[in-house]
């Protein structure tokens, strides 16, 4: 049991936690945070597992760097969409509003 293997196992736990949050938490911002926790879990597995055997492996480190940039892009886009969605509907969840609740009703 090395420290790297511990990182990878922690990554497994984070992935499960994030998945729970993404599936069960209704607030969009919490869903997004849960996605980022899942992402961190994946990155920990990706770096920790090869590092456990051969020491520092630059390839997964580079992959994780790419993965982080992609995750940041997705997160930022999601936040912008959420702000616009909140501005237009006043809602922070993905629930369908019933017709009378909809702003302005049927237009």
């Amino acid at each position: 049991m090395t420290a790297s293997l511990l990182y990878a196992l922690a990554g497994a736990v984070l992935f499960g936690m994030g998945l729970y949050g993404l599936l069960r938490l209704p607030h969009l911002l919490r869903k997004l945070l849960a996605f980022n926790i899942m992402g961190s879990g994946v990155f920990l597995v990706m770096v920790g597992l090869p590092q456990h055997r051969g020491g520092a492996d630059p390839i997964p480190q580079a992959l994780v760097l790419t993965g982080i940039v992609v995750a940041i892009a997705a997160t930022a886009l999601a936040v912008v969409l959420m702000r616009r969605y909140y501005h237009l509907s006043g809602m922070t969840t993905l629930e369908e509003p019933s017709p009378e609740q909809r702003p302005g009703g049927r237009r």
Binding site: L5, A8, L9, G11, A12, V13, F15, G16, M17, L19, Y20, L23, V45, L49, P50, H52, R53, G54, G55, D57, P58, I59
Partner: peptide, 26 residues
Amino acid sequence: LCLTLSGALAASIWAIAGNPTPVDLP
């Protein structure tokens, strides 16, 4: 579901960590 997944994942990581990789990319 999440607990099972995390458990299975940890078990897989443990199993994988026990064997050397066939390709030495570093």
